[in-house]
């Protein structure tokens, strides 16, 4: 019985939250890695693109709500998502046209593109604040729980409750669909194949008649879609605050590098590695241990490696370890 309680505690506080957070990071890292694979620079504006996409989705959600449209028990934001993606895709295509294309044509060093992306980050940050303000916004109007902690306790008779929020289920299901669709696109369609060819060897791809501008445009659209989805899922799960998205930049980059920049499978694996490490390192295991050891062995203090304020340190430490020992990432990414 106590063993069961320990497992439920672990599920409730570590495995479920880390899985949904991992899925959100994985989607974010997929966007970074796609841009890196095709355009060959680390996009610092990614966090703010995520924030902008979410803000656009929230605005459409409000519009739909005022029209009385609802897909209860699911949150209305899911219905607004396609519109949010369209708006974000238009914005990133616009920035590509206005900013990045110039440097691409000039074949500037990657670091110049990174610099330009910092400028884009500023502008997007301003746009997001202009669009929706700096307040913290809750926009989840769906049913809150799939499994309610109190009902779970009543049904099983366990001391520990298990809560499964609907946003967590939605996150995982959406992430699986998105990843499946992306891999189907990259592996089966003509455009997807030309993208992979372009990523592997630009010169050879150009030689075989692939239109680079089309590849770049498709990449931006896909990245915008994945990014908006990731941002909206994160916002549904936690809440929307523009600054939190900027702070996601570090774990997302860490996830992409751990997996190997430019490698989509790596990005997904990296997202889960980062999320599980972050949650496990900052979780206080005392309650789990208390169920597993005899009563008087229970330690008095918390069994926690780091306090939650230092969750960035986890991404950073993993990043440093990977850079020291395997700079190309766990799955083979682009060369150093």
């Amino acid at each position: 019985m106590d063993f069961l309680n320990a497992i439920v505690t672990l599920l409730n506080y570590v495995i479920i939250p880390a899985s949904s957070y991992g899925a959100q990071l994985a989607l974010g890292a997929l966007g970074v890695t796609l841009i890196y694979g095709i355009l060959r620079f680390s996009n610092f504006a990614h966090g703010d693109t995520m924030a902008f996409g979410t803000a656009a989705t929230i605005v459409v959600t409000w519009g739909l709500q005022s029209l009385g449209v609802s897909i209860s028990p699911l949150p209305t934001a899911l219905l607004a998502l396609p519109f949010g993606i369209l708006i974000t895709a238009a914005l990133v295509l616009g920035t590509d046209r206005a900013v990045y294309r110039f440097y691409r044509a000039k074949k500037s060093a990657p670091i110049i593109l990174v610099m330009a992306s910092v400028g884009v980050m500023f502008v997007m940050n301003g746009l997001t604040r202009f669009l929706i303000g700096v307040r913290e916004i809750q926009f989840d109007d769906g049913v809150r729980f799939v499994i309610n902690a109190r009902e779970f306790k009543a049904a099983t008779g366990l001391a520990e409750g298990l809560a499964l929020r609907s946003t967590q289920v939605i996150t995982l299901v959406t992430a699986v669909i998105v990843v499946w669709a992306l891999f189907w696109f990259l592996g089966r369609t003509r455009t997807g194949k030309s993208m992979r060819a372009f990523s592997d060897n630009e010169d050879l791809a150009l030689l075989s008649g692939i239109n680079p501008e089309k590849v770049v445009a498709v990449t931006w659209i896909i990245a915008a879609a994945i990014t908006t989805i990731a941002g909206t899922l994160f916002g549904l799960d936690k809440s929307f605050k523009a600054f939190n998205y900027f702070q996601l930049l570090l774990p997302i980059f860490a996830a992409a590098i751990v997996g190997g920049l430019g490698n989509p499978i790596g990005a997904i694996a990296g997202g889960f590695v980062i999320a599980f490490s972050e949650v496990a390192v900052t979780f206080d295991f005392r309650r789990v241990v208390a169920y597993l050891v005899p009563g008087d062995w229970t330690p008095s203090g918390p069994i926690q490696l780091l306090s939650t304020e230092y969750k960035f340190a986890v991404s950073f430490a993993i990043l440093i370890i990977v850079l020291l020992f395997k700079p190309t990432g766990l799955f083979k990414g682009k060369s150093v």
Binding site: Y310, F312, F316, I320
Partner: peptide, 22 residues
């Protein structure tokens, strides 16, 4: 982070910046 690809320094410094402040 130095001696690797140029963007790695940018990402690693982003991390140390956040850690020092926290």
């Amino acid at each position: 982070a130095l001696g690797l690809r140029s963007d790695y320094l940018a990402i690693a410094t982003l991390g140390i910046g956040e850690i020092i402040v926290s």
